[in-house]
Design a binder for these strands. Sequence first.
DNA 1: AGTTGGATGGTCT
DNA 2: GACCATCCAACTG
Length: 197
Amino acid sequence: MREGEAGAGTRVGRIVEVEAYIGEDDQASHARFGRTSRNAVMFGPPGIAYVYLVYGMHECLNLVTEPEGRAAAVLIRAVDPVAGVAAMRAARLAHALRRARTSEARARAEARIGDLAPARLAAGPGLVAAAFGIDREKTGVDLLDPTSSVRIEPADATEPPARITQTARIGIGYAAEPWRSHAWRFIDAGSQALSIA
DNA sequence: AGTTGGATGGTCT
DNA sequence: GACCATCCAACTG
């Protein structure tokens, strides 16, 4: 995953955790209510960004996957930084400071984020968006277009292959079976950047 | 080290 | 009016 022009400050990371949300039948998917104004891009062509707000404060980036007419997307849950660590840390800090009301809270956020290991900067869906400066305005962006501000690329051939493991999806306890238990979370096992070890 | 509860606003019944 | 595809601080033991 890559953000910004080539050069200093560009943010690059390896996607190490994703979840699949497949079809209107999937009782954990935003598409379970059919097409709405929020989820409309999920019903469109693949390769497009779907960014939504959860819990009133965290944005989450998805990649639309199935052909037009079939609602599906992959949630990007964690990214291991490869380049642009300073820019990610700055974006995380800016995000935290926007919410911190007291000077004590600001000081705590500054210390905490300043001490964060690079692998922890984007270790969660809300953190991916915060670290890469992504919000709902990115909905509709073509993530496969090399000229887009944010894009997703194939792994570099020199990278070691991922050791991929599956688990149930996170935070969907409201969904009925069998959807709740489908092992549709995919992780690069052993990565230090996972949202949950 | 694991658990619990608060923040905060858009979306859907 | 209820509920969330979350994160973090403040507790417990």
